[in-house]
Amino acid sequence: MKLILLSLVLSLSACTHLNSVSVTSIPKERSQKVSAERYKFLFLLLNFDNKFVDEMEKELAEKCPNGKIQGIVTKTEGITYFPLLAHAYNISAEGYCVK
């Protein structure tokens, strides 16, 4: 019984995998942070396109009108909620708005 409970707890807890991380040059002015995030849930690992990541840069630009976004940290993460059944991608980009 304990073993079944332990297996259940382990299988219901999610695992996050960091696929990649990248950083651009960090600016001197770092007072205003801007960020954009994309998330996609995958049932049975089925994913037919990656269009959900498109135009993240546009969202960042809209959050920093008349400025430049520098020092952007982009992270690509994979999440396993339940092996085979439930997975997700999470892509985040965070940088500094320089006016």
Binding site: S20, L60, A61
Partner: peptide
């Protein structure tokens, strides 16, 4: 025959708001 789209890496470079 159906493919699965897998992401390995996504990278955003510096953005000028003029891109809008």
């Amino acid at each position: 025959l159906s493919s699965c789209a897998i992401i390995h890496k996504h990278q955003v470079q510096d953005v000028d708001s003029k891109i809008l």
